[in-house]
Design a protein around this nucleic acid. Sequence first.
DNA 1: TATTTTTCTTAACCCGGGTTAATGGATTCG
DNA 2: CGAATCCATTAACCCGGGTTAAGAAAAATA
Lengths: 197, 197
Amino acid sequence: MLPEGPNPAFIDLFTKTFGLDEDEFQKFTDHFYIRHISKKDYYLRAGEYCTAKAYLHKGCMRNFVVDEKGHERILFFPFEDWWVGDFESYYSGKPGTNYVQALEDCTLLMIDRADFSRLEKEIPKLQQWYVIKMAPAASASRKRLEEMKTLSPEERYLALIEKQPFIFRRVPLHYIAAYLNIEAPSLSRMRKRLSGK
Amino acid sequence: MLPEGPNPAFIDLFTKTFGLDEDEFQKFTDHFYIRHISKKDYYLRAGEYCTAKAYLHKGCMRNFVVDEKGHERILFFPFEDWWVGDFESYYSGKPGTNYVQALEDCTLLMIDRADFSRLEKEIPKLQQWYVIKMAPAASASRKRLEEMKTLSPEERYLALIEKQPFIFRRVPLHYIAAYLNIEAPSLSRMRKRLSGK
DNA sequence: TATTTTTCTTAACCCGGGTTAATGGATTCG
DNA sequence: CGAATCCATTAACCCGGGTTAAGAAAAATA
């Protein structure tokens, strides 16, 4: 584990939310290992296999896919206390389609899929993983897709400011443009337009 | 019933698809009555109750709702052999939200909800109605909503030409524009643009 | 047939996003 | 520190849809 220990949020997730007792938590965390990803390096690329769960302990990343026309489409920006990876690949065992790149130097707490599934048998509480972590994530991404289709670029921008203003303090604007599905100059123009109000 | 009798499609629907025998079909059709709707008149308006099934024997209509901004949004153009009405209102017993207006002089074959549900008890085959008529309609309208969100106006126009070219022979272009969710001048420009190819 | 209504197109203008390229400032890195 | 990279903005130009108003053609109606 980490020198300073993992985030309180990490501890709470397993002790409070999953209800692991001290022994279980200890046994569980024994299987974690640390991985550093330097800024701009990739944790995952399309075509690679995702065979571990990774808890983003420190840093910030971007998770994107490349569409038919070769455009990078950013799905979300993982920050501290997110679990990152290519979930489809993790569960299907097939190569993934997602890129996950560090926007800052990142520290991941990792546990291999094989270890996790072994632990799931010993500690059945861990089987709540899908309900607690995956289902909400899936619903959030459905909602985001919906938003992308129904809102105008400007509405999407304003919604982002409203709901995740912290993103603007850590993510370069041209990535935010890609997240909003517009081009960087359009975002610039929009910001100028809106600032005059 | 009609002087000339109903469409062959109508007869087939109940004898072949629903499997009614001659007696059943006779008993069933005895409850139908004819209603004429003159061009431009409404069969239904928002706020009214829809208490009958109506088979469009002849003519062509437009089914639309009015959105928050007061724009008429055309959902589909019923032609011969469609069943028209406000299905939500029919099944819920509440006032409807749809307008159904004749674009040509129309003839409807109608059966009241009360009669139909009585007949459903006598002739259980009629209970297939939901599966045979409603489910496909619901799925078609989901698909159309999806198309509206994912395709550009031009793609929607081309898709319409491809799939329902006959609409262009019977429906004025400004209604088609409303169906495509664009303004009439835009449709005109688009047609000009495309004709130069 | 004459007149009214409907239908379709066009013009002129606005608006916002895409594209490309240039610029200058900030940051990073050797 | 100096050079290279990254970042944000801006300009210039295209494109297509919205809006409004006008006008011509076609159809319906009296």
